[in-house]
Simulated assay, not measured.
Amino acid sequence: MEEEKSLDLMGIKPVAKAVEKATDKTVDGLGSFFGAICMPAAEEFGLLLKDKVAAYRQRNLEKISQKAKNKIEHQKIEISGQANPVLIREVLEEASWCEDEEIQSMWAGLLSVAAGNTAVSDDSLVYTDTLKRLTPFQARLINEIYFDPRCCSVKPPIGNHEGDVFYPENKLIYSVVDVLEIYPGDLSEIVPIANASHEKILATENDHSIALSRFRPQIEALKVLGLIHDVKFLNNGKEGIYVFPSLKGLDFFMRCLGYSVYPLEAFILTLQHWNKLKDIDPFTCQKT
């Protein structure tokens, strides 16, 4: 006992034990949540959490699981206990590295949908590959586009739209400042303009096209992923962007909110209903 005390010169053993105890409690809580969603693999997920998921990833998973619980409760989803175990593995292995709140919420949306499905009926897995590719900026831009009331300014017969594209009557045009303000960090750290602060970049029109060009690859990548049908950079980006939404993007957006709604007509009508509750007319409103 005396020898142990002499080795613990900084007195950190009690702290280490407290951290270990808190970590065990977190792991047990996560194991219970993921086990409830996917009961057949509950034991395996518990072992995986204990053996392979370090404290940093545990914190991220804890946030994601809490967000998923909130969505499940809010939407009154009845947990089946038969979610696809491959989806849960993807969350444990991929989502656990994500510390961005917006993307964590999107992972939580996929989990909440999966919680009410069975491994046979659950197709949430097809969305995980797309989600793990997104940057924080792209995630926010997707939410900006499909939360935009103008996105659902589509009149019946909605089902007449061909392929993976639909055309809102109220165009989705965003100014350069609209786009730049979506970025969650300090623009001065990534935009190549010398001695320009975040505020100066937003306020200086001459800097806008340079700043927007920094995000052009990420915006165009959303088209490659199919999350938007097309995007036009107005006057080479000096006047903003014109976005054409896609069915795949709207489907992805709804899934990441925690909703599984089919077909396209139901998607649009759901968004129109949400806006009506807020007394917003998608056909006449301006950018909010």
Rank of each mutant, 00 (worst) to 15 (best):
E2V: 07
E2T: 06
E3M: 12
K13C: 02
V15I: 15
K17Y: 03
E20F: 11
T23R: 15
L30K: 06
L30T: 05
L30Q: 03
S32V: 11
F33I: 11
F33E: 06
G35N: 12
A41G: 00
A42V: 05
E43A: 14
E44L: 12
F45L: 07
G46K: 15
G46S: 14
L49F: 10
D51R: 14
K52C: 00
A54R: 05
A54Y: 05
R57H: 09
L61Q: 06
L61F: 03
L61S: 09
Q66N: 14
N70H: 01
K71N: 04
Q75C: 01
Q75K: 15
S80G: 12
Q82H: 10
Q82S: 11
N84P: 03
P85M: 11
P85E: 13
R89N: 09
V91K: 10
L92Y: 05
S96G: 04
W97L: 11
E102T: 15
E102Q: 11
I103S: 07
I103W: 13
S105F: 01
M106G: 07
A108G: 02
L110D: 04
L110V: 03
S112Q: 04
G116W: 13
G116Q: 12
G116N: 10
A119V: 01
A119M: 06
V120D: 13
D122R: 07
D122G: 08
D123Y: 14
V126E: 14
T128N: 03
L131V: 04
L131F: 00
K132H: 07
A139Q: 05
R140N: 07
R140Q: 07
E144L: 10
I145A: 03
Y146M: 12
R150E: 00
R150K: 15
C152F: 06
V154G: 07
P156A: 05
N160R: 07
E162Y: 01
G163Q: 03
D164H: 04
K171A: 13
Y174E: 01
S175I: 01
V176R: 13
V177P: 00
E181N: 14
D186A: 08
S188H: 06
E189L: 07
V191W: 05
I193F: 12
A196H: 13
S197Q: 11
I201E: 08
I201W: 05
L202P: 12
A203I: 00
H208K: 01
A211M: 11
F215G: 10
F215R: 13
F215V: 08
I219F: 00
K223I: 13
H229G: 14
V231W: 02
N236Y: 15
N236S: 15
G237D: 02
G237H: 06
G240C: 09
G240S: 10
G240L: 07
I241N: 04
P245T: 02
G249T: 12
L250W: 05
D251F: 01
M254D: 01
R255M: 13
Y259I: 04
S260C: 11
V261L: 15
F267C: 03
F267H: 15
I268D: 06
W274L: 14
T284Q: 09
